[in-house]
Design a protein around this nucleic acid. Structure first.
Lengths: 235, 235
DNA sequence: CGACCACTTGAAAACTCTCAAGGCAAGTGG
DNA sequence: CCACTTGCCTTGAGAGTTTTCAAGTGGTCG
């Protein structure tokens, strides 16, 4: 299933990773030189809900969805992560099993740092703590925004909001086509609704000339209108 | 509005606060001796969405709800905090305005530590970082659980789940009466539903002999049944 | 070509919300 | 002490949204 490649060595991560960016070059090498990156194909899981963490993961390249499984096996996306982000540190700090799974959305390369090594690095680089605290704070803030949205907004508002979020999270090309490919089902569960409602709503947004749809590609035609529809407040 | 009392000195916090519990006695004094505790009456806000933090707050005693305000001014409770917990550190670490408000649920005493002093303490007590990371990790996990619940569960399931959560968060007396008084509206918005649906659902749960209602007092009569109704999985 | 998967559409059913009205208890002012 | 106000709780009924179920399309892959 998993392809262990001996190159590239993951000192490359040091350049793409915001959280580790302050480490000096010498230290970089000691962190990453022994680590191998691991490749995951679309749909493969990087870690799974219920398992125990053995360290942290750094996304060398690619996009990942963090999902939880509900009672009837229905998947719920709680977050995305992309190149340069850390995964799995929450379970490590919380000292418990993973409470969600990480699934590759496309071809993903992951570097793994063992728990021991990670805490060792932490103890020597205090600002890393601050970076992690900041990251967790932002994630928690976003999660709470999501709670607010799902609780109080209509399906249409939530889907419009979801599109805006995806636009900012994953970026877009010069045509404003969002740089991520999700199924209708995934968009629906991001917005906390069913696939049918998602399809109907996307259709409506298209009719209102707010977006354009080309298969899985979503093109934002009228960001202001979308934000207005979403009652979007936060960046 | 606010009653500044010069006693008790807040070194008392050191005993009730899990996050600061490892500080040695000498350091305790330097942290807390200059701080005054502030009293808040029920309904008063300790800090408000949109304002900028000047430090962190420690709940010396009492119960607090963390709320966000939705588009139409509708309140959404995203979290509770009680005696011994820290408030407002997220905005501090994230380096942004408060994204939610903290409202006293009953008589609350709060100690405030300035930003400067707080970071100073942090820099000298590395394990504090770990405690905070752990706390944030758990909060994020809980927020994501909430997202899952609100997205996938019915109103009845969510209200049953809310009762179970309140039971564990705030504790209960020997009769299994939950140790917090919330309005129907607050319970509803915790569960992500309206006051009417909340009332009807609580009624149904009572008819099914899962709970007993005495005004705002909720007594758990059949925890197993409640958990089953809620499809409750996590502690 | 057939199987499969994702997408789409329609119609009915179910759930939840909204609106309206009334009850009850506590607090206020005459 | 009583009328009045206020806030919270409760119930009913209809409206509205969203889900569910069913059916069908289109594209891809072996």
């Amino acid at each position: 299933m998993v392809n262990h490649s001996h190159s590239p060595l993951c000192d490359k991560c040091s350049h793409i990773n915001k959280i580790f960016c302050g480490l000096n070059i010498g230290k970089h090498n000691t962190i990453f030189e022994e680590n191998k990156s691991v490749n995951y194909k679309k749909g493969m899981s990087i870690f799974s809900e219920g398992k125990y963490p053995t360290g942290i993961h750094i996304i060398h390249s690619g996009k990942v969805k963090i999902v939880k499984i509900g009672d009837e096996g229905k998947e719920q996306i709680v977050r995305f992560a992309k190149t340069g982000e850390l995964l799995g540190y929450r379970a490590l700090f919380g000292n418990h099993a993973y409470k969600a799974s990480a699934i590759a959305l496309n071809e993903v390369q992951i570097c793994h740092i063992s728990e021991k090594k990670f805490f060792n690095i932490l103890s020597k680089n205090q600002y890393l703590y601050l970076n992690l605290l900041k990251k967790l704070s932002l994630d928690l803030g976003r999660a709470e925004d999501t709670i607010l949205s799902i609780s109080q907004k209509s399906a249409k508002e939530r889907i419009a909001e979801t599109i805006v979020s995806l636009y900012y999270k994953f970026g877009h090309d010069k045509n404003n086509s969002i740089d991520v490919q999700l199924t209708r089902k995934e968009i629906g569960n991001l917005a906390g609704t069913t696939i049918e409602t998602t399809i109907r709503t996307l259709s409506n947004l298209k009719k209102e000339h707010l977006i354009e749809l080309n298969g899985k590609q979503i093109v934002v035609k009228d960001m202001a209108g979308l934000m207005c529809t979403a009652h979007y407040e936060n960046q």
